[in-house]
Structure formats: structure tokens, C-alpha cells
């Protein structure tokens, strides 16, 4: 059987790709999509721990359900902010959002 560490390394790799995307891309929609990648990476780690844990098997999967619900809410609000930003200034560039810069 595949060791637990393999799944954790896969999760870490996916999380890093998501972090790269969040840092590198300019479009606010792309940033939201890369955040979803990071959510998925965390879900993989949670399910792997849930599957290999000695005690309390299945609790990690319950947690993943709540992560799914919160991720859906986050996507809806994030995309609504993107659309409101587009309505306001016809742009999606996160670099343009600098009104609150000190």
C-alpha cells in the first residue's frame, strides 16, 4: 500500500503550485481559482490522515465536508467581489486595488 507520506508530498506539491499562482497571476478570478487549488491540497492531506489514522477514523472526512461548504461560500463571495470590481472600473487587476495603501 502507498505510504502516507506519498499523499502528503502530493498535497504539499499541489499547495505550492496554488501558492505560486496566487503570487504570480494578476487577474482576481485567477487568484480565486488558485486558492481553490490550495483548498484541494489541504483536502487531500485531511483525507489521507483520515484514512491512515489509528483512532477516530473518518473524522478527517467529516472535516473535508465542512471545507467543501466553506470553499463554495468563499468562491461565491470572491467572484462577486471580482464582478463588482469589474463593474466599478472595467478591470480585474489586483495591482489596481491600492486605495488602502498607507
Amino acid at each position: 500500500m502507498t505510504p502516507l507520506q506519498h499523499y502528503l508530498v502530493l498535497s504539499g506539491a499541489l499547495f505550492s503550485v496554488g501558492a505560486w499562482g496566487v503570487l504570480a497571476r494578476r487577474s482576481i478570478i485567477m487568484v480565486v481559482m488558485c486558492l481553490e487549488l490550495m483548498f484541494n491540497a489541504v483536502n487531500i492531506a485531511l483525507v489521507a490522515f483520515s484514512n491512515y489514522a489509528n483512532a477516530g477514523a473518518g473524522r478527517g472526512e467529516v472535516f473535508v465536508f465542512f471545507v467543501l461548504a466553506i470553499a463554495a461560500a468563499e468562491v461565491a463571495v470572491g467572484l462577486a467581489i471580482g464582478i463588482a470590481m469589474y463593474r466599478l472600473r472595467e478591470k480585474l487587476d489586483v495591482d489596481e486595488l491600492d486605495e488602502m495603501r498607507g
Binding site: 507520506q5 502528503l8 504539499g12 503550485v17 505560486w20 484514512n51 489509528n54
Partner: peptide
């Protein structure tokens, strides 16, 4: 930055030893 994060996570997670068993329990 992303590559450095991947390397650090890979080293830490790949070498970590958990009290969890090596065989899945299939919940």
C-alpha cells in the same frame, strides 16, 4: 518562492514519521 515552498514541504512531509499506522483503516 513557490519552488522553495515545494522543496521545504517535500522534505518535511516526506521525512515525517507519524504515529498513524502504515496500513489504511478504510473508514
Amino acid at each position: 518562492a513557490g519552488a522553495a515552498l515545494a522543496v521545504v514541504l517535500g522534505i518535511v512531509l516526506g521525512s515525517a514519521r507519524f504515529s498513524a499506522g502504515s496500513a489504511p483503516k478504510n473508514p
